[in-house]
Design a protein around this nucleic acid. Structure first.
Lengths: 194, 194
DNA sequence: TTTTAACTTGAACATGTGTTCAAAATCAAA
DNA sequence: TTTGATTTTGAACACATGTTCAAGTTAAAA
């Protein structure tokens, strides 16, 4: 046995995630990364293999963080649908200034890389799909709890919410008008309850 | 007086636009461009100044193309709202396979470049705003023509449509499920008519 | 204290990048 | 045909990029 890793793997991935989320895959150079995570090229490549593999881990880290936050909002709100709406408000409006980017990191990945790095695209797709599945589960619970109509279709509503989430976050980057977006979120969830 | 430009400026910008739209700003090298528009570095820089300026012209070209298409759909459909819906279906579903990317080029620009190239971001914002204004005009005509309710607010509806358009196009890239997206578009416009 | 296997370092490499510029080619006017 | 301003060409430049690897450092085990 010998030296065990000096760095904290999760911490490093988190820091890399923040930088990747801000600047995107191509605009983040390995030099930028070296500085952000305070590791030298050799160590980075020994630990992660390549820039792309580190990015993959960063994507998963991002996705997990979002999923945890959604869970917390549901607990705080005390109801599935209330939690979802709080989550929307948090992501689209409250956190959009403190986050590295207004736009979802999975969406940024999907729009930036395409032919090159097909694995990054596939992973982003997969993680987005998981998010939608999670939305559907939550909406099913809302249906079971009587928060939404008996005839509502959780899968269709989940897809609808996914489109809203993606669209709203990008729109926020365009317009910087939190008040109108807050109203839009209210309308979206009012329509779901009907 | 001497030689006049050999190349067709609009044609060159259009070709550059298609490549930029497909690959994004950073992933399109000037070598790629040289091949696509069949011009040598010196000519390109004499004609456009820099890669960024050529991209700016490409953005405007893209935006004009979309605006023209919207106009055509309105004429074909014979009504403002019908034209808008046809435009949505065309962009999100029909053309998404033949276009260089499923995603709006303005949105791609906005999510890819940020701190670097602030002028590209500002131009994308401006062009997106113009699109929304156009939507609002069309919706006002729909209101005047009795296609939508008297109490409807064209500005709010235009914002809503913009979010849908952005979200749907990215969702199409994620899921590749045209049938469900077609239903979603039907629902969106059914709700507007109410 | 010495050994040893794992980890860390940073200079170096090969390639790709946006851009420049002197030389060559072009063609309307003289 | 000659002139001459303009356009085109492509080699070259300076720098940035992802990645490698031999040498150095570390600390647990012997």
């Amino acid at each position: 046995m010998a030296n065990v890793a000096k760095y904290n793997r999760d911490d490093v991935i988190h820091k890399a995630m923040l930088l990747f989320w801000e600047k995107g895959y191509n605009s983040t150079s390995t030099r930028d990364l070296q500085q952000a995570i305070d590791m030298r090229p050799g160590s980075i490549y020994a630990a992660f293999g390549s820039k792309e593999q580190l990015y993959r881990e960063a994507l998963v880290c991002y996705s997990q963080g979002m999923a945890e936050m959604l869970g917390q909002r549901i607990v705080s709100a005390g109801s599935p649908l209330g939690g979802l709406e709080a989550f929307f408000r948090n992501v689209v409006i409250d956190q959009c200034d403190t986050n590295p980017s207004e736009v979802c990191m999975l969406v940024k990945t999907l729009t930036e890389v395409s032919d090159d790095h097909p694995e990054l695209m596939e992973l982003s797709r997969e993680l987005l799909k998981r998010t939608e599945d999670r939305f559907a589960d939550i909406l099913q619970q809302a249906k079971d709890g009587g928060e939404i109509a008996k005839h509502a279709n959780p899968r269709i509503l989940a897809r609808h919410l996914q489109v809203q989430m993606i669209g709203l976050r990008i729109y926020m980057k365009t317009s910087r008008n939190p008040d109108s977006l807050s109203e839009q979120i209210s309308t979206i969830f009012a329509n779901i309850k009907r």
